[in-house]
């Protein structure tokens, strides 16, 4: 069979037509180098975030207050490891190796979501992480289910299916504390106080300070702007906080009848960029823990390789 080879112009047009028609770009399709690079960076960072995100919650597995809480937390953290795998696999279809991505994380070259550089100092923080951090992640990930790159979109659909239990188990923890003794309620309020603003920062800088967003939106990787996503998250979360009888730590927060949305106060972007730069409360600890975990797993990887090699040899001999 003789197949038509496309000119560069035709390839570009074909790519644009797929995007225009709300289709999916698949790994073997031609795509602009910048599109590929943007996706590799975004998907690998997303994968790293899932993996590093296991650390702040992992601290509490042995200290969960009941068996019910413990199995739930274990299952959630195991899910996050799976999310990392789905995303690494999606990134690999773009031509990067797993080895290189992992090494970029371990050497500190790669970024991951800043939220995971905050500490989980009380049990209420585990509730706040599930409720707010997973809650914010879900708002972002629901949008990404429609991303124009097929493997990313499919990974997101799978991830979103698993996420809703994460947020519910977190909210349930906070709910029980909020309805508990005054001390327990105070724990819940304290966790909300510390996690609220960093959760809002998860959506990234304001639209006018986010120069790459426009291109991402033109490519339909991103479908909703940072500020709009943030607003969506706030509007859905405030009533949940009200139900708990907890106070969101923002004196400027109030319902705007005209906009049918909540107005809210200024975000401390200096803090955000400071954490991104590596100066958050736990940046060093997270990197060290990842490096240690990877080094401690080396003998397992070696053993698995040796076992596979031995079995292959035996099969050959037989």
């Amino acid at each position: 069979m003789q197949f038509r080879t496309m000119t560069a112009q035709q390839q570009q047009e074909r790519f644009e037509a797929i995007i225009e028609a709300e289709g999916k770009v698949e790994p073997k399709d031609w795509m602009p180098e910048a599109y590929r690079k943007t996706l590799i960076r975004q998907i690998s960072q997303h994968a790293h975030s899932e993996v590093v995100g296991m650390l702040p919650e992992g601290r509490w597995i042995t200290r969960a207050p009941s068996l019910r809480r413990k199995v739930a937390l274990l299952a959630k953290i195991q899910d996050e490891g799976g999310h990392g795998l789905y995303l690494y696999s999606a990134a690999e279809t773009l031509g990067v190796s797993r080895e290189d991505m992992v090494s970029d994380l371990l050497t500190g070259k790669a970024k991951y979501s800043s939220i995971f550089n905050y500490p989980t100092i009380t049990w209420a923080d585990i509730g706040a992480v599930g409720w707010l951090v997973d809650g914010a992640a879900i708002v972002n990930q629901i949008m990404l289910q429609k991303a124009s790159f097929g493997p990313y979109s499919r990974a997101m659909i799978r991830i979103c299916k698993e996420e809703s239990f994460h947020q519910r188990q977190g909210y349930e923890i906070i709910l029980k504390l909020a309805q508990g003794t005054p001390e327990q309620k105070e724990l819940a309020q304290d966790a909300l106080n510390r996690w609220w603003w960093p959760s809002l920062m998860m959506f990234g800088p304001n639209d006018d300070a986010s120069p790459n967003s426009a291109q991402s939106m033109a490519w339909k990787i991103k479908r909703i702007s940072n500020d709009d996503l943030r607003q969506k998250f706030i509007d859905q979360t405030v009533p949940q906080a009200n139900f708990l009888g907890l106070t969101i730590p923002d004196p400027d927060l109030k319902w705007n009848e005209e906009r049918k949305a909540y107005d809210f106060g200024e975000i401390d972007w200096e803090e955000f960029f400071n954490v991104v730069k590596g100066n958050g409360p736990c940046n060093k600890e997270r990197l060290r823990d990842r490096q240690e975990a990877h080094a401690n797993g080396e003998w397992v990887r070696e053993a698995a390789s040796a076992y596979a090699a031995k079995k292959a040899e035996r099969k050959e001999a037989a």
Binding site: G82, L85, S89, R98, A309, A312
Partner: peptide, 18 residues
């Protein structure tokens, strides 16, 4: 989906977990 594994048996057992 996909995953890395040294042989088919471990690929299956990892697939089951993930």
């Amino acid at each position: 989906g996909s995953l890395h594994a040294p042989d088919a048996e471990m690929a299956i057992s990892n697939a089951r977990d993930v």
